[in-house]
Amino acid sequence: MLNINEIDTVYLASGVTDLRKSIDGLMVIIKMELKLDPYEKALFVFCNRQMNKLKVLHFDNV
């Protein structure tokens, strides 16, 4: 279960993301395009072309 108290930041990826990408594909976007650490205490939010679906990536440091 997501503990919102452990989240420091929420990043919204601007533009369109192909939501067929796996976790690894989204991590590449976070590292290369956003130049961020995917393991930080943050939520990374991606949106599809129709803007009716979201995919959220968060790593739990347990």
Rank of each mutant, 00 (worst) to 15 (best):
M51Y: 12
N48K: 06
K31S: 08
Y39C: 12
V16S: 11
E40H: 13
M1P: 11
Q50C: 07
A13Q: 06
L43M: 11
I7V: 15
V56Q: 09
L19K: 07
N48L: 09
G25Y: 05
G25P: 07
I23W: 05
A13I: 03
N52M: 10
Y39N: 09
C47F: 13
L19N: 04
K55V: 04
E40D: 14
A42N: 05
M1S: 15
I7N: 06
D37Y: 02
R49E: 09
V56D: 04
A42R: 02
L26F: 01
N61A: 15
C47I: 11
C47L: 14
L19Q: 04
N3Y: 06
K41G: 07
N61Q: 15
D24Q: 14
K53N: 13
D37N: 10
V16C: 09
Y11H: 07
Q50W: 05
D8Q: 12
M32W: 01
E33D: 15
L54W: 05
I7E: 07
Q50H: 10
N61M: 15
I23R: 09
D37C: 03
I23Q: 10
T9Q: 08
L54E: 02
D60L: 12
I30G: 00
L57C: 07
G25T: 05
D8C: 08
S22C: 13
V45T: 01
M32H: 04
L43W: 03
D37R: 01
P38N: 05
A13Y: 03
V56N: 05
L19F: 08
G15P: 05
E40Y: 10
M32N: 12
R49V: 04
I30H: 00
E40W: 06
L36H: 02
S14F: 05
L26W: 00
L43T: 07
E6Y: 10
L54Y: 04
L19C: 11
D60A: 13
H58W: 05
V28P: 00
M32T: 02
K35R: 14
Y39E: 10
E33T: 04
L26Y: 00
I23E: 06
V62G: 10
I23G: 09
D37G: 01
E40T: 10
D18W: 11
V56C: 10
L54N: 10
M51T: 15
M51D: 15
I23M: 13
F46G: 00
K55T: 03
L19M: 14
E33F: 00
G15R: 02
T17M: 01
N48P: 06
I23V: 13
E40R: 13
N52D: 14
T17A: 00
V10T: 08
L43F: 08
